[in-house]
Design a binder for these strands. Structure first.
Lengths: 152, 152
DNA sequence: ATATAATAGTTTCATTCGTAACTAATTGCA
DNA sequence: TGCAATTAGTTACGAATGAAACTATTATAT
């Protein structure tokens, strides 16, 4: 027999963190079908490619900052991308520890194929919303994000 | 030298899936400080407890459905919760495969401590938004979620 | 100049996670 | 009845993840 209980009450399907997490997972899965299934690129790797596709020559530490990933994850993603010949790495003249990363030709070609696909997906998502809802969403995400970032 | 590139362009910090994923991760981390750090309960385990706190006697399959977790993750969470004496399991008389799960006394006490904490956190989050923004967010999440759920 | 601290990135190890294969119980149907 | 198909849940295995320790290089302070 299934019984509803008294005492505390939490309805998962109305709980904001759960709803966000559900939505985000579904979107992640849909996106990774675009780059994992077709190009064998994982989530972390794609994020690294995404920032290096935009800004070439960054160090691993800066990539970590821009992707909000930790340095271990970035290191692994970089090494795997290099192994797959999607990334080039040199080291800075003035500091031999610091890497200077950029997409290889193959990396850029791949990036240029993936970007339109993920942008199409984003557009489809956003088109389920009216323009004013899109604006609201932008504002709301800014607010919530600055709240969760409040202490540093 | 850091260069901006032409060809495709994707700015991660404006890309909706990335923004959602960043926010969701931060919220997850904050919540798990509430239940992991204080009670040693992981994310999957908490989700299982959350539905069983609300609806007692469910089977693992129904828990999986209500938490949107897959059955393997649910099975692991359940067994770990039982080992920690937070959950009780019996099997249905009319089908010996089907489990009937409920929080133990200790499980319910823990649940009753965690629920107010996570609800406080949710309230703090929502209070960064005006009432109309909260309403918009609800509507927007519904729309986006029904989009990502569209094929099944 | 040299020792200490800090920084960039990697490695290690233990845990988590996801997919597929598996066991046990039940149902459907010939 | 009895055998194939389905269902509930678990196990096995490889990949991904996170924390801490580690290497190499550079900066700081005396």
């Amino acid at each position: 027999m299934v019984t509803k209980t008294k005492s505390s009450n939490l309805l998962l399907e109305e709980f904001l963190p759960y709803r966000l997490s559900y939505l985000t997972n579904k979107i992640s899965q849909a996106l990774s079908q675009l780059y994992t299934d077709k190009f064998g690129i994982g989530h972390a790797q794609w994020r690294v490619m995404a920032v290096l596709g935009r800004f070439s020559g960054l160090s691993a530490a800066v990539v970590a900052e821009k992707t909000a990933m930790d340095k271990v994850a970035v290191s692994r993603a970089i090494n795997s991308l290099i192994k797959n010949e999607l990334l080039l790495r040199t080291f800075a003249d003035d500091d031999k520890r610091r890497s200077e990363l950029s997409l290889s030709k193959k990396g850029r070609d791949t990036y240029d194929k993936i970007v339109p696909m993920v942008q199409d997906y984003e557009r489809d998502l956003l088109e389920t919303l009216s323009q004013s809802e899109q604006d609201n969403l932008d504002k709301i995400l800014r607010r919530l994000t600055s709240y969760v970032d409040k202490d540093q």
